[in-house]
Design a binder for these strands. Structure first.
Lengths: 350, 350
DNA sequence: TTATTTTCTGGGAGCGCTCCCAAAAATCAT
DNA sequence: ATGATTTTTGGGAGCGCTCCCAGAAAATAA
């Protein structure tokens, strides 16, 4: 039915050389004379030949694939469409360069972490895995992290197994320090925070950055101004409600979604943003520009995170390092309206 | 370094049978006595054995993978984060059941349609492809559609090669008919439309549904009330501007994004939504509930679209039908505020 | 020149599986 | 009982590749 595909022997025959020589040319290793190489390359080009990946995998034990593991609880993807596509673009940008394929693993409602883990792992379709961060995927991470045979890089630092795996994340401390610093420079002095779940390294880092900024400005830390949230709209809304009455002129939210919730609560209590309360969020989700006031927020270099993670994974696959590698990427503050920079006399450009 | 994985012979040996018998058990074909089958299954279970996929692929020529092809111009994904993840969940729901893997192909800025096509096609990592709809991916589709060796299903009907490929889409005619009918039942009589690019089957179908609804209500079709848009915010904004002055009391937008743009324009001209103009969008994007008034819109069964597409692809892989198969999925109208149903006396429940 | 090293080449084995085929065992028909 | 069928089993070939190894050819040294 289908024309059978050519194989190495066919190419070898057409080029008047042996199968082994063709293999050497394709893999660019071992000795092969210039004229034969040229001849082989020409035949390959002309026939549009590509070696059979399955046969290659069978002997080399390498699939030239990485897997992206997406636990069902893909919270952040839900918030922002561009997030996932940017990440994917970053990842494939690198896999493309290195001629790797990408396979996707989504967990399925009906399966346990263990089943999911086995499904991913058994068929050996991949040389390594990229685990998308998701709260609630701890069980899965545990399986994955303990399986030394499967190179693993996580996107963002993960709760329990945090430091033990390779990961790429953003510099949360610095990002938060910067954001809070911005508020301070705008003259705000009572800065409240709605954090993420505080067991999470991200949330911890952001809180620490907040403290550092205050300390640098000689302002005491007031635990009354810190509320733990969940990165959800509702937790932002409720967090702001708790804070009202404690007296604050600025709010640093753990993420944009909770910032939006908080702004809603503030407005309902007659507090204007940014006049009465300056607000800064985190993530720079797509919706950040469509709410009023437009949200000042910390922009994450999502595409680069993906690219770096892929790059790191390929390194791990090649080098099998024993020490965990961690990459921190810088963020930048996107100043819009909610921080009140436009109102203030002291402006921080850029 | 790594413990070598077990192979069929190992399992055969442990179970006291031959390799061929183990294969028969695993693939559930051919004769094998009950006791041997049981013995083999037990050993497989106990050893956590899974056959080497590469070796299987090598001989069967089947990869047990489908590919999802995502052209760079992933417009709709950008609009709505839930869209892509829902689609993916639908797809993987089916591949999971049928024990298929999913590999991802994103096009890369620097490569031509032809290069992308070859990259996807050469390595033969997949048994078939799912092409994500994207305006501007016509060139790619052309390559793919002409390659009879690669089973292809497109998500939504695609412009030029429209009917020639297998596809899954929604019933645009019916959806639009329904939406316009809703407006009519609310007493609106002058219903304007901002379409998508009219060369696109989706847009054509929606326009046709509009006409059918008008005809059924005995209302003449006024070409003055039809404006071609591009599914973008700006085109919605501009489309509404063009319409203003032509006299209309309702607007059916080609999608939510352009509906939002249109509402903006209407408001700027002092027209209230829904009091002066009732608006209905299409897609039910995540943001539809966060704008004011909340958008009445046509909800697409995204997850089902993904699932059906995957199912169809598996069928095509198995049966290689010569006639193109088309699946139309029903939509439903989500009544919120922008259509003014709350104001009207005549209400259509559901 | 011959001996030695370096470069180049092809044949063979084997990765782990499926599938074909022939033979053995069990079942049925006569 | 005997032969004809049906069920069950294992061995062998081969999918297309990489890699090892032995030998040929070319380059260099003596």
């Amino acid at each position: 039915m289908n024309t059978p595909r050519l194989n190495l022997d066919d190419i070898a025959h057409k080029a008047g050389v042996s199968r082994a020589t063709v293999s050497r040319v394709i893999n660019n290793k071992g000795y092969v004379s210039d004229d034969k190489r040229a001849r082989v390359l020409q035949v390959i080009e002309q026939e549009g030949f590509a070696p059979n990946q399955a046969a290659r995998t069978l002997v080399t034990k390498r699939t030239q694939n990485i897997g992206i593991v997406i636990p069902e609880q893909i919270d952040i993807i839900m918030d922002d469409g561009r997030y996932f596509s940017s990440l994917l673009q970053g990842i494939t940008e690198v896999t493309y360069e290195h001629d790797y394929g990408v396979v996707l693993w989504l967990s399925h409602q009906s399966e346990s972490d263990e089943q999911f883990y086995k499904r991913i792992t058994r068929n050996r379709l991949t040389d390594g895995l990229l685990l998308m961060s998701a709260t609630g995927a701890d069980g899965l991470l545990e399986y994955l992290a303990q399986d030394a045979a499967t190179p693993l890089v996580t996107l963002f630092e993960h709760g329990r197994f945090g430091g033990q795996t390779h990961f790429v994340t953003i510099d949360n401390v610095e990002a938060a320090r910067n954001a809070v610093d911005h508020l301070l420079r705008l003259g705000r002095r009572r800065i409240a925070v709605i954090t993420g779940r505080i067991t999470h390294p991200d949330a911890q880092g952001r809180l620490q950055g907040y403290k550092l900024a205050l300390a640098a400005a000689g302002i005491g830390f007031d635990p009354q101004l810190v509320v733990e949230g969940l990165y959800t709209y509702d937790s932002g809304y409720e967090g702001a409600q708790k804070l009202i009455g404690r007296g604050f002129d600025a709010l640093f939210a753990g993420n944009d979604t909770s910032a939006v919730g908080a702004i809603r609560a503030l407005n309902e209590h007659g507090l204007r943003v940014p006049e009465d309360v300056a607000v800064i969020g985190f993530d720079d989700i797509a919706g950040a520009t469509s709410i009023r006031p437009q949200l000042t927020t910390v922009h994450q270099p999502v595409r680069q995170i993906g690219a770096q993670a892929a790059r790191l994974l390929l390194e791990v696959i090649a080098e099998r390092p024993t020490q965990p590698r961690h990459i921190l990427l810088p963020t930048h503050l996107v100043v819009r309206q909610s921080c009140g920079a436009e109102l203030a006399s002291v402006l921080t450009p850029r």
